[in-house]
Design a protein around this nucleic acid. Sequence first.
DNA 1: CAACAATTGATGACACGTCAACATCTTGCT
DNA 2: AGCAAGATGTTGACGTGTCATCAATTGTTG
Lengths: 153, 153
Amino acid sequence: MEQPRWLDEREARVWQAYLAVNRELHSALERQLVRDSGLSNADYALLAPLSEAADGVVRSRELGALVGWERSRLSHQIGRMEKRGLVAREECVEDARGSMVRLTPTGRAAIESAAPAHVETVRRYVFDALSADEVEVLDRVFRRVLDRIADGG
Amino acid sequence: MEQPRWLDEREARVWQAYLAVNRELHSALERQLVRDSGLSNADYALLAPLSEAADGVVRSRELGALVGWERSRLSHQIGRMEKRGLVAREECVEDARGSMVRLTPTGRAAIESAAPAHVETVRRYVFDALSADEVEVLDRVFRRVLDRIADGG
DNA sequence: CAACAATTGATGACACGTCAACATCTTGCT
DNA sequence: AGCAAGATGTTGACGTGTCATCAATTGTTG
């Protein structure tokens, strides 16, 4: 690392604002979810793709890919949700290493009851504040940043 | 909750992209920090404002305000950093309830050695990918979202 | 000043996330 | 077939984040 290329004033402000949005949005959504339906952001992240799958059954590996989580994180979260009866683990027929995750009736009821208020909250805090042009800029920008991170180091 | 106003296709895509940026950026930065300097994002978040304060001493309450953390989170993190010798707690003279946080020489060495590579990583993943116009849009958008969340409910 | 309220910080319990290590199974190579 | 390499999932340890609660102190108000 030679001469560090520091952030200029505007960049530093935007970076701090990004960190703040992260923090505040995450905790606002978590509070709303827990209060209105007893689900956490982590619960919701898994229940959403499960509820969209045929029969509410998804292979663990694929569920991980859908939400972008590592195996260990996924396994721990599924374990916690299993204890509360939101999902159930089943053996995988095609691949004896694998494990299937099944959405229980309790889990389906939970996500269906949570979704409207959750989406409404996202809309209220985020999309109601944005013009169509701004949404388009965000789309491009987020995708570009993701590409950069994926392109390694 | 009457008719839920669902997100349209583009909004849903952008929301997923936002969640992915969060996830990937946070973990990429964490990995870089831990690898190159043994600090976590949480460590860095506290060391940065401490290193900019006169004498490296900040009252706990104010440090919390600077980084936007709740008291409990701050107290736990300071405790962990104190164990590793990065900061030290001292009594507060003006207010016997309070507690002062002091950056130790070890802590200062850590943040000064970590900062250049960390900033370089933020620049590489984020700001090098953005035009000046896009940075300006992000500035406005982030601020508007923060205002909405702060305006309660 | 006394009583009540608010602020500040610490703590324990528990949820969440990451890493390294492990067991098990599948795949690919020879 | 047989073996090495990779894939899949789980586990334990530990760092991180939130909530409820507590103790101590300060602020406010009658």
